[in-house]
Simulated assay, not measured.
Amino acid sequence: MTSNNPPRWLVVLAFLAIYIVWGTTYLAIAVGLQGFPPFVLTAMRCVVAGLLLLAWCLARGEKLPGRGTIGNSAVSGILMLVGGTGLVSWAEQYVNSGYAAIIMATEPFFFVLLDKKQWSSYFSNKWVLLGLLIGFAGIVLFFHYTGEQRPEVSMDTTMVLTGNGVLLLGAILWVVGSLYARNKLDHSHSNTLTTGLQLLAAGLFSALTAAATGEWGRFSFAQVPAAAWGGFLYLVVMGSLVAYMAFTWLITIRPPALVSTHTYVNPVVAVLMGWAFAGEHISLLQVLALLVILLGVLFTNVPNYKLMKAV
């Protein structure tokens, strides 16, 4: 799946995966944290998903690539999945799932700032700029929301602020890793193979991080409740195998800033899921912000809609 002109229906399904499915993973992380420390959770979900993908590739007769591709896959995977996903898991100990998704919605702006190769395209396209500005306005509206954070630290302002800073760092690292993967990976290999390598590398690095922070010493499989296991399995299948694979494929066939618009829709899904299943508060201001964010996504995608009509 390395063609620049893939079937339209496949592109649509991939965008649905990163828009909708990824939005639900913020709640799944919160559920998983009921039994798993953050980097233990990240390590296990990435290792399991990575091994499954690599086993599938080897069973189909694919051969492992050379050191260069393995190394580049490892670097990009660690940046995105440890720096991004792992830090989100850590921060969700202190902020609720919807709020975490809101802060991660800053990713498109870092794509525009860091993707120098696309600067001429981004800054000369009125639709992209208008969409990003409208999306940013929606995010600002979200930041007026001061709803409940994690009950056990709701009065600890320092940890809430630290969680916000960690989420912002996670967004930056995710963007850096995405751009690195786009520019450095050898796309002659299947997306499944390189994604498996990324996941496995990120899982192993997360396991080392968990060891360094003492998480393994505080963790016991016997004490993990059924709900946390359910969250873990959902993250492996829907988060890592479905949504992440869709993202790593889309980033090779569509402009990164366009693909990153999933971070506009994810808060919509995350807030609604948190409200419906975890009792997280949703205000009228948030509903208004969701509508503004969706409008930003629409405008940002206008050039792509025109391109698809022309094909």
Rank of each mutant, 00 (worst) to 15 (best):
V259S: 10
W174F: 09
Y99V: 11
A100K: 00
V31P: 00
S260C: 00
L285M: 13
L130A: 15
L54E: 09
L288Q: 14
R60M: 10
L295V: 13
T263F: 07
E92A: 03
F299N: 09
T146K: 14
Y305E: 15
I70E: 02
W22V: 09
L16R: 08
L272P: 02
T158H: 05
P256V: 11
G86Q: 06
F110I: 07
P6M: 12
M273S: 10
N5Q: 11
Q198D: 01
Q223H: 15
G231R: 10
A212D: 04
L200G: 07
M159W: 02
S260K: 01
L79I: 10
T24G: 11
N183A: 01
Q93P: 03
V47D: 08
K184Y: 12
K116T: 15
D115N: 07
R60H: 13
A181S: 14
L114K: 09
F123Y: 15
V236L: 00
G50I: 11
G68P: 01
G279H: 05
K116P: 09
V95A: 06
S154Q: 11
G214T: 13
T300E: 07
V265K: 02
E215R: 08
L41M: 15
V128Y: 03
T263A: 15
I70H: 01
S240E: 08
V237W: 05
Y234D: 06
D115A: 06
L291M: 15
G203C: 10
S97V: 02
E107W: 08
T261W: 09
M159L: 11
F39G: 02
F15M: 07
K309H: 12
G68Q: 08
V287S: 09
V287E: 10
L284M: 13
I18N: 11
D115Y: 07
A43M: 03
V224Q: 12
V175E: 05
A226I: 08
H189E: 12
N191L: 00
P267H: 03
V95G: 05
F221Y: 10
L161K: 15
N266G: 07
F15H: 04
P255A: 10
A91D: 04
V176L: 06
V128I: 14
L197S: 03
A310L: 11
T248V: 10
Y99E: 04
